[in-house]
């Protein structure tokens, strides 16, 4: 696992911490990224411990999707964490697009919407909860795009509660950028 952190000037774009992590496409490494996200969120973002655990799950699900569906064994996925303290946390997960279930941003957007409808409160299916429920319920925005690595780029954003009212009035003209709350 490769960690790279750069501190950006707060005045430039209000991004304070921008962290890039490359993870080999093996599930073995997911516990490491979960620990990292938990500690980062607890200590550097202004989010509560409850949200730290939630982001841990969100990142785990996104990374697992990128490894299981978006990339072949022996490659790396890229995880970017952007923390704007007391304002928002963003996570970007990118795969190489070489996996068995490669999808376009448009296909992923459609799949996400379908699963949001499919997975109700008493859903008995074996799979399909990660993206619509864990990621979808615990983020404010999700955007599916194309990664420079060749595959899918999933970008999620969560605002601190005091900012959430502002988010609810935002609309997006991009069909693969969903405002969830």
């Amino acid at each position: 696992m490769i960690y790279f952190m750069e501190k950006l000037p707060k005045q430039a774009d209000n991004r304070v911490t921008d962290i890039h992590i490359y993870i080999p496409t093996q599930a073995y490494f997911l516990s490491g990224i979960r620990d990292f996200v938990l500690n980062l969120t607890k200590n550097m973002t202004g989010f509560s411990q409850q949200w730290a655990y939630r982001f841990q799950a969100v990142v785990d699900e996104l990374c697992n999707n990128a490894i299981e569906h978006g990339s072949q064994v022996g490659q790396k996925i890229k995880v970017t964490l952007i923390s704007t303290p007391d304002k928002s946390l963003e996570v970007i997960v990118e795969d190489t697009g070489t996996g068995k279930d490669k999808m376009t941003p448009e296909q992923m957007t459609t799949l996400f919407k379908e699963r949001k409808h499919m997975v109700g409160e008493k859903y008995l299916g074996f799979r399909g909860r990660g993206l619509p429920k864990i990621v979808g319920e615990w983020t404010d925005e999700i955007n599916f795009g194309i990664s420079e690595l060749g595959g899918l780029k999933v970008h999620i954003k969560k605002y601190l509660r005091k900012e959430e009212d502002k988010v609810s009035s935002v609309t997006s003209k991009d069909p693969t950028h969903l405002i969830l709350k």
Partner: peptide, 16 residues
């Protein structure tokens, strides 16, 4: 634990 109950609730398993 709280984080486990939280994830079970968000996926709806505590309804079952």
């Amino acid at each position: 634990r709280e984080n486990i109950l939280d994830i079970l609730q968000v996926v709806g398993l505590t309804q079952l």
